[in-house]
């Protein structure tokens, strides 16, 4: 459908009322009361319409990358405009309580010709396929990131513990038990892991806020793009803590098994 903005044209008695999406109204500088000309094709702009409302559509992720301009008309007005009277793309049917959607669909499809009935749940599932794919992609990326982080953490912990070779040697010389040294090193690893996790969580909140601010502005929407739920937060903290302690323990175990003179560098 094509729309042309007419400035200063007084509305005639036969004009149609239309509701214009807020983003479209802003782009075309339309306000309530303005007159536009509508048509099914650019060379058939015969129908006058008055902007009777400007509306904000419900945020819909499925529509986010579509830059289509939308207006709403009463069904009979649109049918006349398109030259397709008494024709619609789809019906919505509400069933009386107690009738299941599946049985209603079965009955309709058995007797239907030229159309097909679908339960709303199936349509919702089909239309959310895109987000299921994106979700699977994010999960795969997350797994790779976790593997990379785990290796990084293990490496850092190993280096961190190895830095304490001399300290460990001295402690062994003065009679401190291996178990005590091991416990101290693991405790240190745990503290580092906790501090790192808290810093990481703060960084994630900052990055999430920046992501939301950027994409909300970019797509002109109120959708939430990055959401850090308590579950995600606890999972991340627990995972980094477990990985940190495990890496620290592995490195500490390796260190306490070495003879003190070797640690001292004199063996």
């Amino acid at each position: 459908m094509t729309l042309v903005v007419l400035q200063g044209t007084p509305p005639a008695a036969s004009t149609t009322g239309i509701a214009v999406e807020r983003a479209v109204a802003e782009r075309l500088h339309l306000a309530v009361g303005d007159t536009v000309r509508l048509g099914a094709t650019p060379d058939s702009l015969r129908r006058l319409a008055v902007v009777s409302a400007i509306y904000e559509p419900r945020p819909d992720p499925a529509e986010i990358s579509r830059r289509s301009s939308r207006v709403r008309l009463h069904l009979p007005d649109l049918a006349v405009l398109l030259g397709a009277p008494d024709r619609v793309d789809r019906f919505g049917i509400g069933l009386v309580p107690g009738v299941s959607a599946d049985s209603g669909v079965t009955v309709l499809n058995r007797s239907a010709f030229g159309f097909r009935a679908h339960p709303s749940a199936v349509i919702a599932s089909e239309s959310s396929q895109t987000f299921k794919v994106v979700s699977r992609f994010h999960r795969a990326i997350a797994v790779i990131s976790i593997v990379a982080s785990a290796v990084f953490l293990l490496c850092i912990m190993l280096l961190k513990v190895e830095e304490r070779r001399m300290d460990a040697a001295v402690m062994r010389f003065v009679g401190v038990r291996r178990r005590t040294i091991f416990g101290a090193l693991v405790l240190e690893a745990a503290l580092i892991a906790i501090l790192g996790s808290v810093l990481g969580a703060a960084l994630a909140f900052l990055a999430g806020s920046a992501t939301n601010a950027y994409y909300r502005r970019f797509f002109d929407t109120e959708l939430v793009f990055s959401l850090i739920t308590p579950r995600i937060l606890w999972f991340s903290l627990a995972l980094s803590l477990v990985l940190g302690i495990a890496a620290g323990a592995a490195a500490a175990w390796r260190l306490v098994r070495i003879r003190p003179m070797v640690l001292w560098g004199r063996a």
């Binding site: 790779i144 990131s145 593997v147 990379a148 290796v151 490496c155 190993l158 280096l159």
Partner: peptide
């Protein structure tokens, strides 16, 4: 061990 871990980390990062 230290080198192997670093190489593994760099390998994962460069794969990404």
């Amino acid at each position: 061990l230290r080198t192997a871990l670093s190489l593994a980390g760099i390998a994962v990062a460069s794969a990404m």
